[in-house]
Protein backbone atom coordinates (compact mmCIF):
# COMPACT_ATOMS: atom_id res chain seq x y z
CA UNK A 1 0.00 0.00 0.00
CA UNK A 2 1.55 3.25 -1.03
CA UNK A 3 1.48 6.35 1.12
CA UNK A 4 -0.23 9.17 -0.66
CA UNK A 5 0.08 12.02 1.80
CA UNK A 6 1.77 12.82 5.08
CA UNK A 7 1.16 15.63 7.48
CA UNK A 8 3.20 16.54 10.53
CA UNK A 9 1.85 18.68 13.37
CA UNK A 10 3.50 20.01 16.51
CA UNK A 11 1.06 20.30 19.40
CA UNK A 12 1.87 23.24 21.68
CA UNK A 13 1.59 22.07 25.26
CA UNK A 14 1.45 25.52 26.79
CA UNK A 15 -1.51 26.98 24.97
CA UNK A 16 -4.83 25.41 25.77
CA UNK A 17 -6.81 27.60 23.41
CA UNK A 18 -4.56 26.55 20.52
CA UNK A 19 -5.49 22.91 21.09
CA UNK A 20 -7.57 22.03 18.09
CA UNK A 21 -5.32 23.78 15.58
CA UNK A 22 -3.84 20.50 14.34
CA UNK A 23 -7.17 18.69 14.12
CA UNK A 24 -8.77 21.71 12.47
CA UNK A 25 -6.02 21.77 9.89
CA UNK A 26 -6.34 18.01 9.39
CA UNK A 27 -10.05 18.42 8.80
CA UNK A 28 -9.38 21.01 6.09
CA UNK A 29 -6.79 18.77 4.47
CA UNK A 30 -9.12 15.77 4.49
CA UNK A 31 -11.92 17.86 2.99
CA UNK A 32 -9.67 18.70 0.07
CA UNK A 33 -9.24 14.99 -0.53
CA UNK A 34 -13.01 14.66 -0.91
CA UNK A 35 -13.33 11.93 1.69
CA UNK A 36 -16.73 10.97 3.12
CA UNK A 37 -17.91 13.52 5.73
CA UNK A 38 -18.28 10.86 8.42
CA UNK A 39 -14.71 9.65 7.83
CA UNK A 40 -13.45 13.22 8.14
CA UNK A 41 -15.52 13.73 11.29
CA UNK A 42 -14.18 10.57 12.92
CA UNK A 43 -10.56 11.31 12.08
CA UNK A 44 -10.77 14.95 13.21
CA UNK A 45 -12.46 14.15 16.52
CA UNK A 46 -10.03 11.31 17.28
CA UNK A 47 -7.16 13.67 16.52
CA UNK A 48 -8.62 16.47 18.67
CA UNK A 49 -9.05 14.18 21.67
CA UNK A 50 -5.44 13.12 21.22
CA UNK A 51 -4.30 16.72 21.00
CA UNK A 52 -6.19 17.66 24.15
CA UNK A 53 -4.72 14.69 26.00
CA UNK A 54 -1.20 15.73 25.02
CA UNK A 55 -1.84 19.29 26.19
CA UNK A 56 -3.42 18.20 29.50
CA UNK A 57 -1.05 15.41 30.43
CA UNK A 58 2.17 15.58 28.46
CA UNK A 59 3.06 19.23 27.85
CA UNK A 60 2.37 18.83 24.15
CA UNK A 61 3.69 16.43 21.56
CA UNK A 62 3.69 15.62 17.89
CA UNK A 63 1.21 14.17 15.47
CA UNK A 64 1.92 12.44 12.19
CA UNK A 65 -0.85 11.63 9.78
CA UNK A 66 -0.31 9.22 6.91
CA UNK A 67 -3.05 8.86 4.35
CA UNK A 68 -3.24 6.02 1.88
CA UNK A 69 -6.01 4.96 -0.45
CA UNK A 70 -7.37 2.66 2.24
CA UNK A 71 -6.86 4.38 5.56
CA UNK A 72 -5.93 7.40 7.61
CA UNK A 73 -3.21 6.62 10.14
CA UNK A 74 -2.71 9.06 13.01
CA UNK A 75 0.36 8.65 15.20
CA UNK A 76 0.51 10.76 18.35
CA UNK A 77 3.81 10.87 20.20
CA UNK A 78 4.64 12.65 23.44
CA UNK A 79 7.37 12.71 26.05
CA UNK A 80 4.96 12.98 28.96
CA UNK A 81 4.69 10.92 32.14
CA UNK A 82 3.20 7.86 30.45
CA UNK A 83 0.00 6.03 31.35
CA UNK A 84 0.34 3.85 34.44
CA UNK A 85 -2.76 1.74 33.89
CA UNK A 86 -3.94 1.67 30.28
CA UNK A 87 -7.02 -0.48 30.90
CA UNK A 88 -8.19 1.95 33.57
CA UNK A 89 -7.47 4.92 31.29
CA UNK A 90 -9.63 3.28 28.63
CA UNK A 91 -12.66 3.15 30.95
CA UNK A 92 -15.32 5.72 30.21
CA UNK A 93 -15.47 8.26 33.02
CA UNK A 94 -11.99 7.56 34.41
CA UNK A 95 -9.86 10.69 34.38
CA UNK A 96 -6.71 12.01 36.02
CA UNK A 97 -7.18 15.53 34.64
CA UNK A 98 -6.77 18.33 37.20
CA UNK A 99 -9.67 20.49 38.38
CA UNK A 100 -8.76 23.55 36.27
CA UNK A 101 -8.98 21.41 33.14
CA UNK A 102 -12.34 20.01 34.20
CA UNK A 103 -13.71 23.51 34.60
CA UNK A 104 -13.03 24.02 30.88
CA UNK A 105 -15.26 21.08 30.06
CA UNK A 106 -12.54 18.48 29.61
CA UNK A 107 -11.50 15.65 31.87
CA UNK A 108 -14.77 13.75 31.58
CA UNK A 109 -12.85 10.55 31.09
CA UNK A 110 -14.05 10.22 27.52
CA UNK A 111 -10.92 11.16 25.58
CA UNK A 112 -9.32 7.76 25.04
CA UNK A 113 -12.70 5.97 24.79
CA UNK A 114 -13.73 8.44 22.07
CA UNK A 115 -10.46 7.90 20.22
CA UNK A 116 -11.09 4.17 20.23
CA UNK A 117 -14.72 4.65 19.29
CA UNK A 118 -13.91 6.80 16.27
CA UNK A 119 -11.01 4.76 14.96
CA UNK A 120 -11.13 1.30 13.44
CA UNK A 121 -7.94 0.28 15.16
CA UNK A 122 -6.04 1.83 18.03
CA UNK A 123 -2.87 0.82 19.83
CA UNK A 124 -1.27 2.46 22.86
CA UNK A 125 2.39 2.11 23.73
CA UNK A 126 3.33 3.84 26.94
CA UNK A 127 6.28 3.84 29.26
CA UNK A 128 6.23 5.57 32.64
CA UNK A 129 8.52 8.57 32.72
CA UNK A 130 9.22 8.37 29.00
CA UNK A 131 6.04 9.02 27.10
CA UNK A 132 3.19 7.63 25.10
CA UNK A 133 2.66 6.70 21.48
CA UNK A 134 -0.84 6.17 20.18
CA UNK A 135 -1.56 4.87 16.72
CA UNK A 136 -5.05 5.14 15.30
CA UNK A 137 -6.24 3.85 11.96
CA UNK A 138 -9.43 4.94 10.30
CA UNK A 139 -10.59 3.04 7.25
CA UNK A 140 -11.51 5.10 4.24
Amino acid sequence: MSELLNFHFVVDGTNFTAAGNASGQLKKNLRQLNLAPETIRRASIAMYEGEINMVIHAGGGEADVNITEKEIEIILTDNGPGISDISKAMQEGYSTAPENIRSLGFGAGMGLPNMKRYSDQMTIESELGKGTKITMKINI
Binding site: T17, A19, G20, S23, R41, I45, Y48, L104
Partner: peptide
Protein backbone atom coordinates in the same frame (compact mmCIF):
# COMPACT_ATOMS: atom_id res chain seq x y z
CA UNK B 1 -23.38 26.76 29.14
CA UNK B 2 -19.69 26.19 28.41
CA UNK B 3 -18.13 29.30 26.94
CA UNK B 4 -14.42 28.96 26.31
CA UNK B 5 -12.74 28.93 22.88
CA UNK B 6 -12.62 25.14 22.85
CA UNK B 7 -16.37 24.94 22.20
CA UNK B 8 -15.71 26.42 18.76
CA UNK B 9 -13.26 23.62 17.99
CA UNK B 10 -15.77 21.05 19.22
CA UNK B 11 -18.53 22.58 17.07
CA UNK B 12 -16.24 22.57 14.03
CA UNK B 13 -15.20 18.97 14.47
CA UNK B 14 -18.63 17.55 15.23
CA UNK B 15 -20.14 19.69 12.46
Amino acid sequence: IMSNTNIVAVATLTN
